[in-house]
């Protein structure tokens, strides 16, 4: 089993942190192998940001994503740049409000399973902090893909977030789980 995850958006959305938490959950708490890599612009704020996590049950040779099985896009730029690189049948999570222009043709051709939600808005409603959007999305992602257990991702979230924000982040994560369940039942 080799699964490739691509997460992209712009600086400040927590793209890198989300990828680190996912990799940590897989390696430290699930005993799987994972490689997390990233790239970003020179600006510390507002530039393009991209992270990859490759997860496998055996040692990982080539460390980068070749054809992602899963992708999460938080910006129009990311969507346009990377959509065509996804594997056929890949699962895709989108921040709906930030990606107004969609390419139905490519989405169809690649038979993508797309989940487009106003993630930032939901995060804000849930926790009062739009910043928790990345954690919420992780919850959604794990519920949808089951690539790691909920327990594992929960522990990894607790390891990574700043002290004092644990509860608020867990709240976002659980909301993500909830959304994921609904989505699987096609209630969304």
């Amino acid at each position: 089993m080799r699964k490739e995850v691509l997460i992209s958006g712009f600086g400040g959305q927590g793209v890198i942190l989300a990828s680190v938490i996912l990799g940590r959950a897989a390696t430290v708490y699930e005993g799987l192998y994972a490689v997390q890599t990233q790239s970003y612009g020179p600006e510390s704020r507002g530039g393009a940001s991209r992270a990859e996590v490759v997860i496998s049950d055996e040692p990982i040779d080539y460390p980068k994503a070749l054809r992602p099985d899963y992708a999460i896009f938080f910006s129009q730029e990311a969507y346009q740049k990377y959509l065509s690189q996804l594997k056929e049948g890949a699962t895709l999570i989108l921040e709906k409000d930030l990606i107004p222009h969609r390419n139905e043709e490519v989405e169809k051709k690649l038979k993508l399973k797309v989940y487009a939600l106003p993630l930032t808005e939901i995060a804000e409603e849930t926790t009062g902090l739009s910043l928790t959007m990345n954690i919420l999305t992780l919850g959604l992602f794990v519920a949808l893909t089951k690539i790691v257990s909920r327990k594992a991702i929960e522990k990894a979230v607790l390891d990574a977030v700043p002290k004092g924000t644990e509860q608020i982040n867990l709240k976002a994560l659980y909301k993500g789980f909830e959304l994921g369940e609904k989505a699987l039942k096609e209630e969304l």
Partner: peptide
């Protein structure tokens, strides 16, 4: 830079 910045177990 690749090994330096990548995260693994």
């Amino acid at each position: 830079a690749e090994v330096g910045h990548m995260r693994e177990r």
